Simulated scan of single mutants.
Amino acid sequence: MAGTSSGCNPDMAPSVWLCPEPEASALPCPRWLTEYERTTVAKFSGPRQREYLSSRWLIRQAIGHGSKCPARECEPVSGRPVASVRPKGWHLSLSHSGGISGCAVSDQPGIGLDLEPLNRHPHWQKVVRRWFTRTEQDWLLANDSHEDFLRVWTLKEAWLKATGRGIAGNLQTLEVRPDFSLYGDRHDSGWQAASGELEGFLVTLVYQRDHILLPSGGLLAGPTADLDLDRVVPTESPLPFSWHRPIEPGN
């Protein structure tokens, strides 16, 4: 099993960390940002800038929780933050929704996170008819359950992130059947999915492991207005992953 090269001891289970964005209307650009991050955040303003800065704070906290290294010593790669630069060997997936940021971290590749408010997609039937498989359309429309739709939607989003693909043309590469058995288009083993509810959000993670292993994580107290990385950040609520399924090769 791959680990880090930093000498920090990794958690073997993937973890997911959430945080609310600060309520301040404007946030400073902290000194710990990389040059790439400074250039990127300068292109944003308002809520988009606040989201970006908050997520960069969370990424460092998430890597720190996984690697047991101080958050200030953690750094993602430039561009899409799918891995760590410091300490090396960590794989990441980021999600935002409704003023909440989430970051999943794993010491193995193949990880995808999606979080959605439980009340999102009031007209979900249109999405099902346009983008889902015929099997999914039949049972979801017959059940008429927004909760079932939302779980299927987050599973598909997390699957595409974990396998490195976008939504366009790929939503049917994971099929969810009426008993919530999962079938993907990958033939390597160990793919699995887990989800749980926290603070009005459904949080879904897709990841790859050689054996059954439930994720951990929780909701962190959000960053202060100065985005301080040195303060001790308590976990306000644990994230209960109460639902879990393997992802089988498609047939």
Results as ranks from 00 to 15, higher is better:
residue 9 N to Y: 00
residue 98 G to S: 14
residue 228 D to T: 10
residue 126 K to D: 15
residue 75 E to L: 15
residue 115 L to F: 02
residue 39 T to Y: 00
residue 9 N to F: 05
residue 31 R to E: 15
residue 71 A to K: 04
residue 144 D to E: 14
residue 151 R to E: 10
residue 191 W to R: 02
residue 28 P to F: 14
residue 205 L to I: 08
residue 205 L to M: 05
residue 224 T to Q: 14
residue 218 G to Y: 11
residue 14 P to E: 14
residue 151 R to Q: 13
residue 15 S to R: 11
residue 211 H to A: 14
residue 72 R to K: 01
residue 17 W to Q: 10
residue 194 A to W: 03
residue 161 K to H: 07
residue 164 G to M: 04
residue 171 L to N: 00
residue 126 K to V: 12
residue 34 T to H: 06
residue 22 P to K: 12
residue 107 D to L: 01
residue 187 H to T: 13
residue 78 S to G: 03
residue 103 C to W: 01
residue 160 L to H: 03
residue 129 R to T: 14
residue 13 A to R: 10
residue 163 T to L: 02
residue 124 W to E: 10
residue 21 E to H: 13
residue 130 R to L: 13
residue 105 V to K: 07
residue 242 S to P: 00
residue 144 D to T: 03
residue 32 W to S: 08
residue 33 L to K: 04
residue 246 P to K: 05
residue 250 G to W: 01
residue 199 E to M: 08
residue 103 C to Y: 02
residue 63 I to D: 09
residue 77 V to F: 00
residue 96 H to S: 05
residue 93 S to P: 06
residue 164 G to C: 06
residue 89 G to E: 09
residue 37 E to K: 04
residue 103 C to P: 03
residue 39 T to H: 10
residue 39 T to E: 14
residue 211 H to W: 09
residue 227 L to R: 06
residue 225 A to T: 15
residue 1 M to H: 07
residue 108 Q to Y: 01
residue 154 T to P: 08
residue 96 H to G: 04
residue 207 Y to L: 03
residue 206 V to F: 02
residue 152 V to K: 03
residue 116 E to G: 10
residue 157 E to V: 07
